[in-house]
């Protein structure tokens, strides 16, 4: 039995080699140290935006977590602008020369499409799984400090697509970008928000597990009914009360006009005509 922690005295005994009936050797100590504390699974604190319109276009969703993974604890490096930091290759390292991310880390993002409830799962790469399913490969590239960086992801995405989650939903791959130590960006596609419902976003980092639990808590992204999509965004004129009228001879001065100088008062009806005269103009003729 191994102790949880402490010191073991190791003695070797050889019955064929004894002196004065003493067959045991001297003792040497073996220290048993406490195992390293497991890295806790991510804990999501928020998601932005929290609501999307059904039928809308794809967008980026930002997930923030509280617990940092050891691979992301390079202060400052993940807080740089997106174009400069999106991908960092282990071969280049950070500006201080330290190794920040190993090849293939944190670029996977999966979506569980369940019955009535879809799960967006942002999975930080499981290196062991990638290595065992290295039949697919995807790479992305970005710029850091003017150097071309490259991130490799040996994918199992196609394999995931064929699998089913516990709800019977189909797993799909989505792009995820680690923006900072506490934020990942998920590329939500239009098909993900095609209909109303709730997306339960779960970030999974297989390299960060507690008691074999690698997934975070979930945060909800509501997909609400789209607003009146039939409403045109451009101004539209439907009709007018007068088809013709004089351009002069109007004696009305109630609005500060000069008597008899200008003409007819015309009303037009339409939609999206603006809310103030500052943003809306109307012209008659060239």
């Amino acid at each position: 039995m191994w102790p949880a922690r402490g010191t073991l005295a190791v003695v070797v005994t050889n019955p064929a080699s004894c002196t004065n009936a003493v067959c045991a050797s001297n003792s040497v100590n073996l220290s048993v140290a406490a195992s390293a504390a497991p890295t806790p699974a991510p804990i999501l604190s928020s998601i932005s935006p929290t609501t999307a319109s059904a039928g809308g276009r794809g967008f980026y969703s930002y997930c923030h977590w509280l617990q940092l993974h050891e691979r992301f604890d390079c202060p400052g490096q993940w807080c740089e602008p997106y174009d400069n930091i999106r991908l960092v290759d282990a071969a280049h390292g950070g500006p201080s020369g330290q190794r920040c991310r190993r090849r293939g880390d944190s670029e996977h993002h999966r979506i569980h499409s369940g019955s009535g409830r879809r799960h967006v799962r942002s999975a930080l790469a499981d290196r062991r799984e990638r290595e065992s399913h290295a039949d697919h490969h995807q790479s992305e590239s970005g710029q850091r400090d003017g150097r071309q960086c490259r991130l490799h992801a040996h994918g199992h995405w196609h394999r995931l697509r064929r699998r089913r989650d516990r709800h019977g939903g189909r797993l799909q791959a989505r792009t995820v970008t680690v923006d900072s130590a506490t934020q990942v960006r998920i590329a939500v596609q239009a098909t993900d928000v095609a209909s109303q419902g709730t997306l339960a976003v779960v970030v999974t980092n297989p390299a960060s597990c507690t008691n074999a639990v690698c997934a975070s808590n979930s945060v909800d992204l509501s997909v609400a009914a789209s607003s009146t999509s039939s409403t045109p965004t451009s101004p539209v004129l439907y009709f007018t009360d007068l088809a013709s009228g004089p351009r002069s001879g109007n004696g009305d001065t109630s609005k500060g006009q000069i008597a008899n100088q200008d003409g007819a008062l015309v009303t037009v009806w339409g939609q999206n005509l603006g809310t103030s005269q500052g943003t809306s103009t109307i012209t008659l003729g060239a």
């Binding site: 451009s234 101004p235 004129l237 007018t240 009228g245 004089p246 351009r247 002069s248 109007n250 609005k255 006009q257 100088q261 200008d262 003409g263 007819a264 008062l265 015309v266 009303t267 037009v268 009806w269 339409g270 939609q271 999206n272 005509l273 603006g274 943003t279 809306s280 103009t281 109307i282 012209t283 008659l284 003729g285 060239a286």
Partner: peptide, 22 residues
Amino acid sequence: QCITFQVDHATPPGAQNIVVTV
């Protein structure tokens, strides 16, 4: 919505178009 305006005396005579720009 509706917009009510007054035809300016400098408007050229004849067929014209009403256009709203937002």
